[in-house]
Structure formats: C-alpha cells, structure tokens
Simulated scan of single mutants.
Amino acid sequence: MGDAWIALGLSLKVALWATAIDLMLGIALGWVLARKRFPGRELLDALLTLPMVMPPTVLGYYLLVVIGRNGPLGGWLHDAFGINLIFTWQAAVIAAAVVAFPLVLKGARSAFETVDPQLEQAARVLGVSGPGVFLRVTLPLAWRGVLAGTLLAFARSMGEFGATLMVAGSIPGKTQTLSIAVYEAVQAGQDDTANLLVAVTSVTCVAVLVLASRLAPPRKALP
C-alpha cells in the first residue's frame, strides 16, 4: 500500500514539473501563433500539435533517439556534464511534457486570439511597453483559457503511460508513476492496489476536468 502512495507522489511531481514547462513554452508559442503572421505558421502549429495524435510509443521512441546516451541531446549532456536522463524521473517529466504540450498550446492560442488587438494598441498609444502590454492587457484577458488548457495538460501528464514507460521504465520509488503502477499491479494480480490507484487517478482527473470546464471562456450564444 505504501508503494501506491509513493507512485502517487511521483506522479504529482512529474505532472507539476511537466505542466510548468508546458505553461511557459505554451504561452510563448501560443502568443506567437496567435499574433504573428509568417510563412509556415500553420505548419509549425501542426508540428507542435503532433504529439496529441501520435501514438505514445512512437513519441517514446523519438525521445529515446534524442535524449538517449547515443542521441544528440542525451550524448551531449552525458559527455559535457555526466548527466544520463534515461530511466530517471526527469525523463518521465520530459515525456509527460511532450505529450501534454499541445493542450496548453491550443488553449493559449485560442485564448490570445479572443483578445481584441485594439485594446493592445490602445495600451501602446498610452505609452505601455511591449512586455507591459502582454503582462497588463493580453495575459489578464486570456488567463481563463490559458489556465483551462494548463489544467487539461496536468490531467494528461498524470495519466501518461506509453512514452514514460519507454524512456523512464518502471523502477519502484524512482520512475514508477501512477499509471505504470496500475499496470504493474494488474500484472501482479494485486487487485486491491490496482483498484485504489485507479480510484485516486479517476477522482483527480475528474476534479481537474470539472475545474477546467469552469475556467474555460464562455461560449457565445447561437443567434
């Protein structure tokens, strides 16, 4: 039973770190896609959204190629700093962040597109700097949509399985997240542990989804 709570704590840590990474990148790239016009913009959006539709095992393989010891990023980290990402909780964070990133990106882009550009222009006319316009006008008007996407990403990170298993493995107390612990419990015939883990996961995800739906921008009534 103690291992179940350890897996829950690890899942929360992984999900929080992954969501924090996605939030920073999602806000930046979501604003770029919503406000800038450049060749290949929609292609970039499609590439960034690809993890939403790609099989998790395929993403896990790509991550192994990139952050593995023989990969370009993993090899550089190992040679320069002695860091090995594979089979660590940090690898689980990377996997969860990649899988959940499109949820933050889509939510942020949609939220920024609903902000009236004339309000931003008015702030510039009044002498507010570019970063000031974003922090004082754009982001406060778009925060509900951004936060809704972020909560969905957190719920997705909590349930990540395929890519995490490939790059982080299933080491109890180190890389065995909640979803992987459920799989291992079922395989071992530990129905009580599996039922507990499933219940905790379900309650957490439902609570997050309800909160996200409440924070989502209100829909316009049909004429």
Results as ranks from 00 to 15, higher is better:
G2F: 09
G2T: 13
D3V: 11
I6V: 14
L8I: 09
L10I: 03
L10M: 13
L10D: 05
L10C: 02
L10N: 03
S11I: 02
S11E: 07
A15F: 06
T19Q: 12
I21T: 11
A28S: 11
L29C: 12
W31Q: 04
W31N: 01
A34K: 09
F38C: 04
G40R: 07
G40P: 11
R41H: 02
R41W: 02
D45R: 15
L47W: 11
L47A: 14
L50C: 01
M52R: 06
V53H: 03
V53C: 01
V53I: 15
P55S: 07
P56S: 04
T57R: 07
L59N: 03
G60V: 11
V65Y: 12
V66E: 10
G68P: 10
N70T: 15
N70W: 08
N70G: 15
A80N: 13
A80M: 13
L85H: 07
T88M: 05
A91I: 05
A96C: 06
A97Q: 08
V98M: 12
A100T: 10
F101Y: 14
L103D: 12
V104L: 14
K106M: 15
K106D: 11
G107Y: 07
R109L: 06
R109N: 01
S110G: 12
S110R: 10
E113H: 00
V115P: 04
Q118D: 13
E120L: 04
Q121E: 14
V128M: 12
V128A: 08
S129R: 06
R136F: 06
V137M: 06
T138M: 11
W143D: 00
G145F: 04
V146Q: 05
A148F: 01
T150G: 09
L151P: 05
A153P: 12
R156C: 08
S157N: 10
M158T: 10
F161L: 14
T164H: 01
L165A: 07
V167E: 00
G169P: 05
P172H: 04
S179L: 01
I180F: 01
A181D: 02
E184L: 02
V186Q: 09
D191G: 01
D192C: 00
D192M: 07
T193Q: 09
A194L: 02
N195G: 00
V198K: 03
S202T: 15
T204F: 13
V210K: 03
V210F: 12
L211D: 02
L215V: 03
L215D: 07
P217G: 00
P218I: 01
A221N: 10
L222A: 14
L222R: 14
